[in-house]
Write a protein that binds this DNA or RNA. Structure first.
Lengths: 249, 249
DNA sequence: CGTCAAATTGAATGGGGTCAAGCGGCGTGG
DNA sequence: CCACGCCGCTTGACCCCATTCAATTTGACG
């Protein structure tokens, strides 16, 4: 369904929240010259793999629209979801160190992305001082996302994990129109594989949070009724600044 | 007990495995000019805090000798161990993005470190092309460490987590003299807070692995008897290359 | 309207948490 | 030098929460 070269107005609009915007604009807006610029936009269909573990072609990607997940498979075939990547966020940064991807990236929906070859990033960073500094900040900011995941997984109670997951997603998706509501781009099973819980436990926890009047769930759409109490269940500090969940550079 | 300016031969020896070596040597060996160089060596005593969550002075540190841990505290006062930092490894990279530390760093033993101001890293990276590229690799490599932690925490069984923890530590400490043995620099409680398990569970799991003749435990010294089976319990792929636990750039 | 996937709900089992006691090493002070 | 006390580690017993298996409902799509 996704066109190989997406609508130009859609692209321009989706550049606003992109963490690579400054990087991209520095070398020339990709939507102006899709073929030759550093950031090359394209699309993948829901369910398609963007790259797999062991792929040699190290590339970094920025999500424009849609949503992606990165997964790793254990020796016994179990799937671990290492992260969800929403519009404006990056993925594939693991290949910066070695040039090889160590996870698989799958599209949760039809998704528009921009592609950046690692070699291009490294060489251009070398020739452009402020660009390199900017990349360091982007990378550090991305590492914080992983840190948040660890912090989440170290919580023992299922409700804490689910609450923190929702609260984090609420911040990242940015409450669009006043009301703090959001649409989950992933299945319960994927949430479970991200939280280290069985999908049934995720479902039960969601209904429990709904019974406590913290949220309102209907399929994949979630409305947050009491943001403060949700943060309380997630065991996050009252002061929203200074602590985790603040990685948007 | 730790001297403010450590032994010069000790420093030179500890530079070999340091991931910041190329960075450090590029701007001048710190042990040559301790005061003026970018990397400034110093020591902290066991139990001391190197920095705390919220500290404004963004600095990156490299461990020379000893061991550090980074911890975060939840709203209910529980301590989460986000990582252990062994000789040759970095800590404080979270401050690269915002300039503010979002965790506390505590010395597990008397420890020698090198200190790098973030501003110095950013500005020197800007003026030196290959240095910036090298820093990107260092940062990406560090992010992999966090990814390994997530991958570990997504394993449900306590034995899997403990086995993977030991196997990872074995690779990082590098089996010194032929025999694959290691000395844990942290308490069972810290291990538990890193693995998301109660300290009693860690202890039980260790004895279980010992009963199965996978390891030999005596206090904090662990000898790995069957490396392959240990990797099997950890649910890590047979092929040691291509998958996690490979972050030494 | 039928089909299938996703999600919810129920019941039973088990692994890990919690509380508690016991053990061992090590440093301090008598 | 030995006794004491502290701290870290181990081990046991009990209980709870999450997993597992299973059945049912809901919703999307043809």
């Amino acid at each position: 369904m996704a066109a190989p070269v997406p609508d130009i107005t859609l692209l321009r609009r989706s550049c606003a929240p992109c963490t690579l915007r400054q990087f991209c604009q520095h070398v020339g807006l990709p939507q102006r010259t899709p073929g030759s610029a550093l950031g090359k936009p394209f699309g993948v269909n829901r369910g398609d793999s963007l790259f797999r573990a062991g792929d040699q072609h190290g590339r970094v990607y920025a999500v424009r629209t849609g949503a992606m997940k990165t997964v790793a498979v254990t020796a016994d075939g179990e799937e671990h979801v290492l992260g969800f990547h929403l519009p404006g966020e990056l993925l594939g940064l693991d290949s910066l160190a070695t040039g090889v991807h160590c996870a698989e990236a799958v599209a949760l929906a039809d998704t528009q992305l921009c592609e950046f070859p690692v070699q291009g990033i490294l060489s251009r960073s070398a020739s452009s001082p402020e660009l390199g500094a900017r990349m360091l900040q982007v990378l550090g900011s991305s590492a914080l996302g992983c840190r948040v995941h660890v912090d989440l997984l170290l919580r023992r109670q299922a409700d804490e994990r689910v609450a923190m997951f929702l609260y984090d997603l609420l911040l990242r998706l940015g409450r669009r129109d006043g009301q703090p509501s959001l649409t989950l781009p992933m299945s319960r099973e994927d949430v479970g594989r991200y939280l280290g819980l069985a999908l049934e436990t995720v479902s039960r926890s969601l209904t429990r949070l709904q019974e406590d009047a913290l949220i309102e769930v209907s399929g994949r759409s979630v409305r947050v009724l009491d943001e403060d109490r949700l943060r309380g269940v997630a065991m996050l500090p009252d002061t929203p600044s200074g602590s985790p969940l603040e990685r948007q550079a």
